[in-house]
Design a protein around this nucleic acid. Sequence first.
DNA 1: CTCCTTATTGACAATAATTTTCAATAATAA
DNA 2: TTATTATTGAAAATTATTGTCAATAAGGAG
Lengths: 148, 148
Amino acid sequence: MYGRHWWHGHLRRRGYRVTVPRETIIQVLSDADKHLSVEEIFNEVLKLHPGVGLTTVYRTVELLRNMGFVKKYEFGDGLSRYELEKGSKKPHHHHLVCTRCGKIIDYTDFVDEEVVLLRKVENRLTKKYKFDIKNHQIHFYGICDECK
Amino acid sequence: MYGRHWWHGHLRRRGYRVTVPRETIIQVLSDADKHLSVEEIFNEVLKLHPGVGLTTVYRTVELLRNMGFVKKYEFGDGLSRYELEKGSKKPHHHHLVCTRCGKIIDYTDFVDEEVVLLRKVENRLTKKYKFDIKNHQIHFYGICDECK
DNA sequence: CTCCTTATTGACAATAATTTTCAATAATAA
DNA sequence: TTATTATTGAAAATTATTGTCAATAAGGAG
Ligand SMILES: [Zn+2]
Ligand SMILES: [Zn+2]
Ligand SMILES: [Zn+2]
Ligand SMILES: [Zn+2]
């Protein structure tokens, strides 16, 4: 097994083995700076290590999700997308989805009040519905510049 | 064709025919006060008009979506859910999704600032990304009371 | 390093949701 | 009533995802 990355310990600590497919998949997610579909991850992985199976990508991505490292998104086109959350350079963001061409824009430049309010809302919901809120997703749907 | 409902004119105006399956499907969506999966819509429709096909439900729901009457949601369990937007008694709302049992809570009791801010954010995004924002979805994920 | 145990893998089959196809049907205009 | 053609239902086709299982390889013990 090659170099020790931050995820190495995380896997081992939970009794999971560090394998080539897993390392590669995390690598790919790590390099990408946006949500990838399983197919896209698979293609990137193949460039680095031909022979890794598609099934393994599904499995690994789900594993990482359970570990809380990866976030799963569904934007309405029938494909699930995955994005590294932990250890990612990319900070938390929200999405703009073009309903015509499917383009997705991430935006992170929140208005200050945005972040403050969101926290406030979360607290209120937590109390009111006794719901243990872990995270949120905010999508704005519309028509992008080119599609107009 | 039975009674004239609000949607009758909308369909006709766009050159669509008013049919029993369509009337029934809209009826079902209209009576429901929450997002339904295609399967759920289908079952309700069968109670009113046995013989309507599942395919037609898929088609109609998509038609209504294109007409802007129905909103499509994906909460991450692989099923699409549909909810009447136009002509619905149910106002705009956001969602709380339990990642353990799948339960979904709608909440409409927004904090005042919530609505104001959201509008502000939308305006800013519209300008900045030249994106024509039509609507948004906000989901909070976590663990519900029973699942804790 | 070598051997052993067993988690992990890849190929393939199996599901499940959604879409497509197409001949039969039924809504509307004439 | 008749003609036109959008719409429908049934069945096949597609697509994303999950399950199965024998072969492989990671990591602990010696
Ligand atoms: Zn956020
Ligand atoms: Zn676009
Ligand atoms: Zn809202
Ligand atoms: Zn729950």
